[in-house]
Design a protein around this nucleic acid. Structure first.
Length: 422
RNA sequence: GUGAGUGUAGCUCAAUGGUUAGAGCACUGGACUGUGGCUCCAGGUGUUGGGGGUUCAAGUCCCCUCACUCACCCCA
């Protein structure tokens, strides 16, 4: 690239602008509309936090903390991190501001950029946007079902199809210690045959061996104990009730006993919504329960559940499946000559005062080119103002959809367009 | 961090190692001097990502570098 193009956005970080921005606005609007009928209220947490907020919640051995965080020192030498996910800041905010004293249950949604230092690929960026929700205070699986119902309503409203809801339960800490031991015993005598990645996983988090796609690892893990077989009675009951509720709500789901989450704070319910149309990064939304996290942040024991939606991934799916809706001006004022240009500006001012979108033609362009521009903007009405119109006090109008035209007194333009005002 | 692929006009892409690197779309103007879409005509842009090498000759082959893309890893 030449000298004029030397400055580029950082790797894996993209600009969003028209026409794509309209897809993003649509996603945000539908999310806010849908979430609000479930009683979720917006919460804005900062995008930078003390590093240990993420280290302690996500887990020191997680990939995110080990190698993906944007961490740096501020001028006082404090370790600061750009948030790699949204839940930890919300929980910090919840505890710090004693939001558990708000009317129960407390339900929040948020949206904004997250940052992970990863190699970019399809559907994966270093700065990416999530819309997330968190519900605090309810242990009952009813709210798990509500959350999934809310996610379904959002995805339905936005118009996405061919999605799979995968659910699982990874139990509480008690179930998992028993399971971890059983898993350890199972893989111990197979250790030498595991792939290098899985050998590492064995020591760090044996659950992730289930994520491996290497053929002989898939073979080796056949017959391995499943976390669902190790659930305690309470967790088992919780999971079964959730599944019944999902059936009651006609939410089709697939139990994926291999689904493990990359963040350590999850307990019991985990879920993921996936698609076949996004390449390797196939999750459009994911979440789960985190019943211990509030307590770990110094708050009262508070069960909680949430999920996050990947905005880029939703936008990508929408762009390939739906025609992009681009807003168009209602009025274009084409003018001929300087006096007319001045008159056009006055008319435009009046219409804009009525909240009507008006574009101006500017007289350094021919009438033809002004009309062409009006057409490309997909304008509804063109007003033509020249010497004749100023003489007669009548402005010419033309409706571009069918080419009909007529005249209207300058003073009646707002009335003429009355159907278009707010 | 690892691997593979791709870099040519604003965009999508052509060009056997051989003259002055082309086409479509888009943009601007004209045919129609005050009327858009359809048609026709005209117009402009490139250090072929950058650097080095091989060759009589490199967009094309080789090396380095940068960028992008996809995949692994991991995840939204």
């Amino acid at each position: 690239m030449g000298p004029a193009e030397r400055y580029n956005a950082l790797k894996g970080i993209q600009d969003i602008f028209p026409p794509d921005i309209y897809t993003w606005q649509k996603i945000e609007k539908i999310a806010a509309d849908v979430f609000s009928v479930y009683g979720f209220q917006e919460l804005r947490a900062p995008i930078i936090e003390s590093t240990d907020i993420f280290v302690r919640s996500i887990g020191e051995t997680s990939d995110i903390v080990e190698k993906e965080m944007y961490t740096f020192s501020d001028k006082a030498g404090r370790s600061i991190t750009l948030r790699p996910e949204g839940t930890a800041p919300v929980v910090r905010c919840y505890v710090q501001n004693h939001l558990y004293n708000l009317p129960f249950p407390q339900k929040f949604f948020y949206s904004g950029p997250m940052f992970r230092y990863e190699r970019p690929q399809k559907g994966r960026f270093r700065q990416f946007y999530q819309i997330g929700v968190e519900a605090f205070g309810v242990a009952d699986p009813t709210i798990d079902a509500e959350i999934l119902s809310m996610l379904r309503l959002f995805l339905d409203t936005i118009g996405l199809k061919e999605l799979t809801f995968e659910v699982n339960s990874i139990g509480c800490e008690q179930c998992r210690s028993g399971y971890r031991k059983a898993l350890h015993d199972f893989f111990l005598n197979k250790f030498d045959n595991l792939c290098p990645d899985c050998k590492r996983r064995f020591g760090v988090n044996p659950l992730r061996i289930f994520d491996c796609k290497v053929d002989f690892c898939i073979e080796l893990r056949k017959g391995a104990p499943r976390v669902t077989d190790f659930l305690c009675n309470e967790c088992k009951e919780h999971f079964h009730t959730l599944l019944l509720l999902l059936q009651t709500l006609n939410i089709p789901y697939v139990i994926n006993p291999d689904m493990v989450r990359g963040l350590d704070y999850y307990t019991r319910t985990t879920f993921e919504v996936t698609t076949e149309h996004l390449g390797a990064q196939n999750a459009v939304a994911a979440g789960g329960r985190y019943d211990r996290l509030v307590e770990e942040f110094g708050g009262p024991p508070t069960p909680a559940i949430g999920f996050a939606i990947g905005m880029e991934r939703i936008a990508t799916l929408l762009k390939s499946s739906q025609k992009q809706e681009i807003p168009a001006p209602k009025v274009f004022i084409a003018t001929i000559g300087a006096p007319a240009e001045k008159e056009g500006l006055v008319i435009a001012d009046k219409l804009r005062g009525q909240r009507i979108w008006v574009e101006l033609g500017y007289t350094d362009k021919s009438l033809k080119s002004q009309l062409r521009r009006a057409d490309r903007l997909n304008t509804d009405y063109v007003f033509i103002v020249g010497d004749e119109e100023i003489q007669s006090g009548m402005v010419k109008w033309k409706r571009l959809s069918d080419g009909t035209q007529g005249k209207v007194p300058f003073s009646s333009i707002v009335h003429f367009l009355s159907g278009y005002s707010v």
